[in-house]
């Protein structure tokens, strides 16, 4: 499997997203307080990157990351993505990146993937890996749309995958079913948190990550007039947090039995233990 010629050219689509668990509503407007947001690599994209690294460990090859970004993400996140195993990272800055319009994102990403593939003199990527969805929009469209734009077969919601020669075998989880499929490469695969547990990178990989190439592509330079074709299809009218009104009472007591009795009494008086 590792003989010459079977090395894989893998692209991983990576989104640098808001860390949703640390995002708070602005108390005045209930809109997300993006000014104080923390950023991270999208959870599922870390799984995609990990899967790419595992495939590379088995088959050899090259892993290139591609990210459509509104503006330059914090450099420590770029270093982390590189440390996790990317050979190079391509950033495509575009104002529409923040809009969450999957058509725009996928169209530009697909054009960028073709452009980068041309840099490496490739006819096609063997494998494009994406997260099932991104944690901010939880939309799930970008992977299948990129596959469609590139004209390659999408394998969505893969929980396990392996490549043998030019065939990919994947286990997909579709609601209650496990669907085992195979396809001839090239393919686009989307993965999630069940697929693997991303490793922490080695300290030296982090400290040396800055030596790997970070290339910035401009959308204007992308082939086939990608930018003109990627006009917006959606408009975000507003984002607000619905209010929460919990009592937030801490039930304490003298040991578990006492706590339990107090809680039962409280729930009884609230009328929650009627049946």
């Amino acid at each position: 499997m590792t003989e010459a010629g079977s090395e894989l050219a893998i692209a991983v689509c990576i989104k640098f997203t808001v860390d949703v668990n640390r995002l708070r509503p602005d108390p005045a407007t209930a809109a997300p307080d993006l000014g104080h947001a923390h950023y991270r690599i999208n959870d599922f994209d870390e799984n995609a990157l990990e899967e790419a690294v595992r495939l590379k460990e088995r088959h050899g090859g090259r892993i290139v990351g591609v990210s459509l970004v509104e503006r330059e993400p914090p450099r420590e996140l770029l270093l982390r993505a590189l440390a996790a195993g990317l050979d190079a990272l391509y950033l495509v800055p575009h104002a529409a990146a923040a809009s969450g319009d999957a058509f725009v994102t996928a169209t530009i990403l697909a054009a960028a993937l073709e452009e980068i593939g041309a840099v490496y003199e490739m006819v096609s990527w063997d494998l494009v890996l994406c997260g099932d969805a991104s944690c901010d929009t939880y939309d799930g469209q970008v992977g299948p749309r990129v596959a469609e734009a590139l004209g390659i077969v999408p394998i969505t919601y893969a929980t396990r995958l392996d490549v043998r020669d030019d065939t990919i075998v994947a286990e997909r989880t579709i609601e209650d079913y496990v669907h085992v499929v195979e396809a001839t490469l090239p393919a686009l695969v989307t993965v999630g948190s069940e697929t693997n547990k991303p490793r922490l990178p080695h300290l030296r990989q982090i400290m040396d990550a800055g030596r790997k190439p970070i290339v910035r592509l401009t959308t204007a330079g992308l082939g086939r007039g990608a930018l003109d074709r990627a006009r917006a299809t959606l408009e975000l009218l507003g984002v607000t947090a619905p209010p929460s009104a919990r009592r937030r009472m801490v039930v304490g007591g003298n040991g578990p039995d006492d706590v339990a009795r107090k809680l039962v009494r409280q729930l009884q008086s609230d009328g929650e233990l009627t049946q």
Binding site: P74, R75, E76, L77, L78, L79, R80, A83, L200, P201, L203, I206, M207, A209, G210
Partner: peptide, 12 residues
């Protein structure tokens, strides 16, 4: 940025 990435590694 390297120190921040290192900090994150140690924190994780």
């Amino acid at each position: 940025p390297e120190q921040k990435a290192l900090q994150k590694l140690a924190r994780e």
